[in-house]
Design a binder for these strands. Structure first.
Lengths: 343, 343
DNA sequence: GTGAAAGCGCTAACAG
DNA sequence: CTGTTAGCGCTTTCAC
């Protein structure tokens, strides 16, 4: 069904049909009724392709996600969609599916440039007004979206120098978390760090160290161990940590999976949480609320990151805030029952 | 940058540029080189809107998801995308965001018809070749995608009579799971059912009952309790169940959250899993592998459901298999350590 | 081998 | 108030 056909049935011109459709000119009540009736009857829907081509505007935003199955991606998409819906935009999602395409999790991004370019060809070809790129890890990536003459926002990742980004605060949150533990009287700390080379691991550890140093506390070198984000490894290193006679009275695990590893290691060794050792996690994974006692952890503002990315992009599209903006959102600490007040 | 501009720079006609771009006619090597050089230099990307309008084909598939944050949605999308990529199609995702829009989880779908129609307006307007509708619960929904003259596949839900669907097997899987328990010598069963009115709950329970009846086993009515899918409620009813002197030696929980509730109830009461009571879950949630002992549960073929939905849709688009098809995929049982062999 | 020109469905002057 | 028409960027006959 096309405008022309509607016009033919109604016995009016295409222009008139367009007028009633878009309410873009005065049309007599009689004509309007007649046309509207036919539109309803035929179930006509206007061809966006033609419309957008003609008007040279699409109200379309391209969203490239590195992998939709990485669990933080969905809430970010949801946040993006919510703002899009409010502001009258539609989104077109491109899923790079990196997770299933890579061997090593930290292989350099550039080998996927071809995939990205392919995705961009489609999105730019669809004449999107701007692009949001959602990372699967929080890290620096190259200018993967180079050469496109459109506003771009990187979310859950960033690029050096060029381009705006929306991220969450690793360092400051780890700092606060550690301070809370210090305030609650803990002095003998253990820390299970994330995977070597991971930026969030580095930042979280730095926040931890800063709080420790400011409080003038010393952490025994043997109490600083390296995990790899996994439950298995967390349990393994926690076992060593907790087997020591001078084991920590607080273990800061850099994510929830490893924190749960600590739970199980403690259980094996008959060490009570939080009575004998406090434990904190990071990320507010689903498991955090299903372990007993509930894990104290950190909630990242994922949906909010979606909101802000979209709002930032729309501002750029409308010419507000033309410079590069780097937004770092605060996290909130989720109080569980895995930390004891020893003060 | 448009074809016309490229043509002007190269000093050839638009037709010629189109020929080299699409390799659709013989072009002299010299001209081809010249044009290709300019295309590369200018970073020209063809306008899909114009192209699709002209060719009257888009290779675009519309994917409507009821809520992207419901955790089974992402793997399904991923599966859809994988096939799309292989077959040269692109997808455009529409997220209805039902979860945040509804009060009661089981409110009738029809009140969202307006949202769905809006999403459809966009998708159909974009001239998609077909639509996949991904539900947030496995249930029967009305003909929410009525009146569209395009192939439609319902995934993780279905509609009565009209329309093809791809789902997973609740009943048969619950049957197998129960049989396994019977084979391992369990005779004193307890079951924690899902939310009243939920179709998967009904089907899973039916599968359970079928296996029980076939084996000539009797389940005490007091051992059949109603949960609501939640951890909290699961723990609560498990506490009652396990407090009884004649408590079951196997508890079939209809999802993993409730199964974890059983774990914690058992722990409180000093009852050992699986020595004194075996426990099974359903859904293979992330927690299933982080509890100790590991939970025996059921993995739904989510990504595969995405594959099959897309393949089915493409077949419909290409005129193969024109009738309604209802596919039910088998699940696999994930053997944990929460079931003891008592035979 | 290459170009002129029609037309995909729609909007927006412009004319009447 | 309504209709005629040009043209958005592209593909594709049909001529040459």
């Amino acid at each position: 069904m096309t405008l022309k056909e509607i016009a033919a049935i109604a016995g009016v011109s295409v222009a008139t049909v367009s007028y009633v459709l878009n309410n873009t000119a005065q049309v007599s009540e009689e004509t309007r009724q007649k046309v509207e009736k036919i539109i309803k009857e035929t179930g006509y829907r206007s061809n966006m392709l033609a419309k957008s081509l003609r008007k040279n505007e699409t109200f379309l935003i391209g969203v490239i996600v590195e992998d939709v199955t990485v669990w933080h991606t969905a809430p970010i998409i949801d946040g993006i969609n919510e703002i899009a819906e409010i502001r009258g935009y539609n989104t077109i999602l491109s899923n790079l599916r990196l997770l299933s395409k890579i061997e090593s999790q930290f292989e350099h991004i550039s080998i996927f440039q071809k995939d990205i370019d392919k995705a961009l060809d489609v999105l730019i070809g669809m004449q999107v007004d701007g692009v949001i790129y959602v990372g699967m890890h929080d890290r620096k990536i190259g200018h993967v979206l180079h050469d496109i003459q459109k506003p771009v926002v990187y979310c859950y990742c960033y690029t050096d120098g060029e381009g705006s980004s929306v991220r969450y605060s690793n360092e400051k949150t780890a700092y606060q978390l550690t301070q809370d533990l210090i305030d609650k009287g803990h002095r003998n700390f253990g820390v299970i760090n994330g995977l070597e080379g991971s930026e969030p691991a580095r930042l979280r550890y730095r926040g931890f160290t800063k709080a420790i140093n400011e409080a003038g506390i010393e952490v025994k070198p043997e109490h600083i161990v390296r995990g790899n984000w996994s439950y298995q490894k967390g349990k393994e290193v926690a076992r060593e940590l907790l087997s020591r006679k001078d084991h920590p009275d607080a273990i800061v695990a850099m994510n929830d999976e490893m924190a749960v590893g600590v739970y199980h290691a403690a259980e094996e060794l008959g060490i009570k949480i939080p009575e004998e050792v406090s434990v904190t996690g990071f990320d507010n994974a689903e498991i955090a609320q299903y372990v007993s006692p509930k894990l104290t952890t950190v909630d990242r503002p994922l949906q909010e990151m979606g909101y802000r990315s979209m709002e930032l992009l729309l501002n750029m599209i409308h010419g507000i805030n033309v410079g590069d903006v780097n937004i770092t959102l605060p996290c909130s600490i989720v109080e569980g029952e895995s930390v004891k007040d020893r003060s």
